[in-house]
Amino acid sequence: MKSLTHHLRHYLPLFGVLVAGLVGFTLFSADRNFQLALVIAMAGGYVSWGLIHHHIHRDLYLSVVVEYLVFALLGIVIAFSVIF
């Protein structure tokens, strides 16, 4: 919890991107292409956030980058499967 409080200002942009994407996903329920674009944008924002966050904390390694990428890929595949 202490760590979370410490990193709150770092996490806020991530939460902002994810919440905005979720709201957009709900509002544009009739446009499936746009929904998928939103999910991809959210995944991109999540990976970007990870790269910047770890770069700032000086612990950005290839394995970390790969980890964010596979989680983003997982999210996109799951979203794609229910959108189309």
Binding site: H7, V64, G75
Partner: peptide
């Protein structure tokens, strides 16, 4: 450990779960 932030992963997967729940 050298790893991604668990809390960030939780937030992202939580968002995916929310999408799954609201998808029609």
């Amino acid at each position: 450990r050298v790893s991604g932030r668990t809390f960030a992963h939780l937030a992202f997967l939580g968002m995916i779960l929310a999408i799954l729940l609201i998808a029609k």
